[in-house]
Each structure stands twice: as structure tokens, then as C-alpha cells.
Simulated assay, not measured.
Amino acid sequence: MAISIDTCAAMHIGDRSEQQDRVGMFPHPSRPGCMIAVLADGMGGHSGGAIAAEQVVLKAKQNFSAYAPSSESPVEFLREVIDDAHAVIKLTRFTSEADPHSTAVVMMLRPGHADWAHCGDSRLYHFRNGALVARTPDHSLVEELLRAGRITPEQAEVHPQRNLLLSCLGAEAPPKIEVGGTTALQAGDAFILCSDGLWAYFSDEEMGRILFENDARTAARQLLDLARARAEGGGDNLSMAIVKVVPV
């Protein structure tokens, strides 16, 4: 079966005074069927978060334009994007009054393959026909407590330190970078990169169903509208990048 790619990126400022999320999707300049999706959730005083998130997207785009599959593996490339963005974000401390930090999640799609890397609590989900295949683990205190069995999922949702990250870009410590991937892509596969301003309002089952039942643009609109309604006036910035594998 011949397959094609259906994509959409979407953002909303939520109920914040400034948009500090950034998202981008870019085709490779010379490799047909090869693209990258990147999402960053910035943190920092003044405009520091926006500066940091912008650097993540910029480095991903710049590095991807020079990516050569014959001499660099996808995993090496993805790690380098996050490491390079981390270095640039740290340098911006010397040129601004802000204290910039950011999460990062980056996915490369090429014929038959998808690879990704992340740091922080911005997530990548992989669904197949609506069922969850994989999800990136958060680098957060709450995620560590959950894994240790010290709190329940219900307690995690209302934990007072649920936004405390254990690793991010721009910190003194090097970012913790985790990678993943899948082969044998097929029609029915769907990927979504999203910030916590979106995923906090959905179960895996509901998100997978919305992605399965709709094209990328319609799914993005439904997810955005539902997240805004459920935030009840207290929503964070939210952003997403959706990539669906569909039959031609």
C-alpha cells in the first residue's frame, strides 16, 4: 500500500501573557520523504522562555539542512540538536537579563522509519490505529515518584510540584537526552509532539481516538478546543505537531 504523510502544527497562548512555546516542521532540502518536527516549551523570566524555545527550533532547522544520512545516524543527529540548543541557550544568559530554559522533543521521519529524542516534559506519543505504541517519559519529579510507586496517577495530577523538572536545556547540568524510534511505518500510525499545556488534559485513549478518527488539521482543532475548555480560564501555553501516516 502506498502511503503519504498528513501534518499539522498548532499553538495557543492559553491564559498566559506571553507565548513561550515554539513548534516547527521542516522538510529536508534535498532528501525526499525526510522531514523533522520539533517542539519546545520555554521557561524563564521576562522573555527568557521564548528565547530558549526559539533556539531549539532554530538549531533543529539549521542542523537538519546539513544532515547527511550517509555520514550521520538519526540518533546522533537528534542528540546533537538538543546538545547544540542547550549550549546556545546557556550562552544567551550573557546577552540578556533572562534565565532561559526549555524542554525539547524532536522527531525525524524518513521512508519507513521514525526516530525521536527528548529532554524535559514535552512529550511524543506514537499511536497505531488509535492505540498507544510508545510515549516519552517525563524528566520530572512527579514522573520519578510515579515510577517509584510513591504516588498514584490521581495524586500526580494535583501534586504541588508537578511542574518541577529534573532535566532541561539551559541548566548547569547537561540535559538528559532519551531517544526512541520505530520501523516499518504503516497507514494508521500517528505521532503527536506536544507541550504539557496540551497533554495534561487528555488520557492516552482519548488522544489516540481523536487522532485516529480525524485528519491532522481537524484533530489539532479538536484537541486545542477541548484543552481550552477544560482549562477553565487557567490554561498554560499549548502547542502540538501532528504527523499521520495515511494511505494515498
Score class of each variant (00 low, 15 high):
Ala187Asn: 06
Ala40Gln: 02
Ser167Glu: 02
Ile13Thr: 11
Gln20Trp: 01
Leu109Glu: 05
Gly234Ile: 04
Ser30Asp: 10
Ser203His: 12
Asp115Arg: 11
Glu97Met: 14
Ala117Thr: 03
Thr92His: 12
Gly197Leu: 03
Phe212Ala: 12
Val81Gln: 10
Ser17Gly: 09
Val106Tyr: 11
Arg31Pro: 00
Gly42Asn: 09
Leu58Pro: 00
Val75Phe: 09
Asn214Thr: 05
Asp84Asn: 13
Asp225His: 12
Val106Met: 11
Leu185Met: 09
Leu39Arg: 03
Leu145Cys: 10
Glu205Met: 02
Ala37Glu: 05
Gly181Ile: 03
Val248Pro: 07
Val106His: 11
Val38Leu: 15
Tyr125Val: 02
Arg217Met: 08
Ala156Pro: 04
Leu169Ile: 00
Arg110Gly: 03
Gln155Trp: 07
Ile242Ser: 04
Ala37Met: 09
Met240Phe: 04
Thr95Met: 10
Arg135Pro: 13
Ser73Asp: 10
Val88Cys: 14
Pro174Asp: 13
Val246Ile: 13
Glu205Pro: 00
Tyr201Gln: 11
Gly14Ser: 00
Ala171His: 08
Leu198Glu: 07
Arg162Lys: 14
Pro69Gly: 05
Gly235Met: 11
Gly130Thr: 14
Phe202Lys: 01
Arg22Ala: 10
Tyr125Ala: 00
Ala187Asp: 10
Trp199Pro: 02
Ile3Lys: 06
Gly112Tyr: 13
Ser239Arg: 02
Thr95Pro: 05
Ala117Ile: 03
Gly149Trp: 12
Arg123Glu: 05
Leu146Ile: 07
Gly24Gln: 03
Val88Asn: 12
Ile210Gly: 01
Val158Arg: 11
Gly44Tyr: 04
Glu54Ala: 15
Met35Arg: 13
Ile89Ser: 12
Val245Trp: 08
Leu141Ala: 09
Glu206Met: 05
Gly130Leu: 04
Pro74Ile: 02
Ala2Glu: 15
Ser70Glu: 15
Phe77Trp: 10
Asp41Thr: 07
Gly49Thr: 13
Gly181Phe: 01
Gly234Phe: 15
Ala227Ser: 15
Leu238Cys: 06
Ala117Ser: 08
Glu18Val: 07
Phe77Gly: 03
Lys61Gln: 15
Leu78Thr: 04
Met108Val: 09
Ser239Phe: 03
Gly49Trp: 06
Cys168Val: 08
Arg162Ala: 05
Asp6Glu: 08
Thr136Ser: 13
Leu211Val: 01
Gly33Arg: 09
Pro160Cys: 07
Gln222Lys: 14
Ser73Val: 07
Ala190Pro: 00
Ala227Arg: 14
Gly233Ala: 05
Glu143Arg: 10
Arg217Trp: 04
Val243Trp: 01
Ser70Tyr: 06
Thr183Asn: 12
Asp115Trp: 15
Ser102Asp: 06
Leu169Tyr: 07
Leu193Asp: 02
Gly181Ser: 05
Gln55Pro: 01
Ala241Trp: 07
Glu54Tyr: 15
Leu146Ser: 08
Ser65Glu: 15
Val245Ile: 15
Asp196Phe: 06
Leu164Gln: 12
Pro27Tyr: 02
Phe191Arg: 01
